[in-house]
Write a protein that binds this DNA or RNA. Structure first.
Lengths: 199, 199
DNA sequence: AATTTACGTTACGTTCCAGTTTCGTTTCGC
DNA sequence: GCGAAACGAAACTGGAACGTAACGTAAATT
């Protein structure tokens, strides 16, 4: 939404764009490290090598800062999938997805959990980002699959986006178990493939 | 784990069991209302109609209090399912599950998200509770289904417990959309039934 | 009755963090 | 060069919540 940039001051010293990105990247770092509620502006400023007023000059508070940081975040691109082998493509995508969630997104999901209670705007923003990432994620494996002449149930991409992240997050958070290779193969062979290729 | 009860004081005024449950129930109430991190001991004490030292006499801090409250919580019992109609049974169970999660468990999941960062013990405790609840949940519909001579894939109960809560939570939290009737029918017809009856 | 402990109330001191202000310095546009 | 605004450092105020201690009272054991 608002990125903290004013229309046209045009007078006096302009803001340092380098500090802009330093603040956002530091926010993401702190967010993934300690979670949303333990994130403090002081910690972000220190990590960014920046004074605290420099942060407050750009964002009114924690919610806006985190929203801007998540917005700024460039999601990793899913790996290119080999054409002609749907199982391998799904396995590759699911492994990449599990790594992404385990390494980065847990902090974002925690922010979503925490922030949605008091700041619905932040929650909506984060959901928008997550949808964007998921869309980018589901595009690749199914495009190559369809190109290979593979038959898939209609709405396969949506079904995948609905189930795969859910099950992975459920295992990581609620079960507290890692998404190792046997689990991912189970997910692909016993859940995803039967659903996507069902006729 | 520890429920804050001493072995055998046997002398002096005994602790009031009524206050015990009042504290735990107030904790659950506040937890579902404001979430884990915004839960304060003062609020719990006030809600329970109890002095703050009375809480601290029983639990050393927030983590132990929440753990005990979640332990004490009696999970709602899933509705009895009609035999001979697996689809109706699943639909009933899934609807009940969605209501449970939307009404109560979101606070618990938030506590899990928050607590796992600084208090692994609390996280483990909450996972144990969640497993217990899920076990109680999956027991009913599949017992009646098997009794009716319905054929199910081996490990059907585990598969259900792995997928249904995950997809429901994903929709509620990440997508921010309600689990209305069309969604639940989609979940049962397009995901659960095909997987459980696959041969 | 004496003792021991729980209880509520109230009042603390502490810590953490938010958000602001001040000040001296730096960097830009004009 | 001059003014305006950003910058870092630091100090500051205020609030919220923690956890503890002190008091008088209530309830149990012996």
């Amino acid at each position: 939404m608002s990125d903290g940039r004013r229309p046209a001051p045009a007078r006096g010293r302009p803001r340092d764009a380098g500090r802009d990105v330093a603040i956002l990247e530091a926010t993401l770092l702190v967010l993934t490290e300690v979670g949303y509620d333990r994130l403090t502006i002081d910690a972000v400023a220190a990590r960014a090598g920046v004074g605290k007023p420099t942060v407050y000059r750009r964002y009114p508070g924690k919610a806006a800062l985190v929203a801007a940081a998540v917005e700024h975040r460039v999601p990793g691109t899913p790996p290119a999938t080999p054409p002609g082998d749907l199982r391998a493509a799904l396995l590759l995508t699911v492994r990449w997805l599990a790594d992404q969630i385990a390494e980065q997104e847990i902090g974002l999901l925690g922010a979503l959990f925490t922030g949605m209670r008091n700041d619905p705007g932040l929650a909506a923003e984060m959901r928008r980002i997550l949808r964007r990432d998921e869309a980018a994620m589901t595009e690749e494996p199914f495009r190559s699959a369809v190109e290979s002449g593979e038959w898939l149930v209609p709405g396969a991409a949506e079904l995948f986006a609905e189930i795969a992240p859910a099950v992975i997050v459920h295992r990581l958070i609620f079960a507290g178990r890692p998404c190792d290779q046997p689990f991912l193969e189970h997910l692909v062979d016993d859940v995803l493939l039967p659903l996507l290729q069902r006729r």
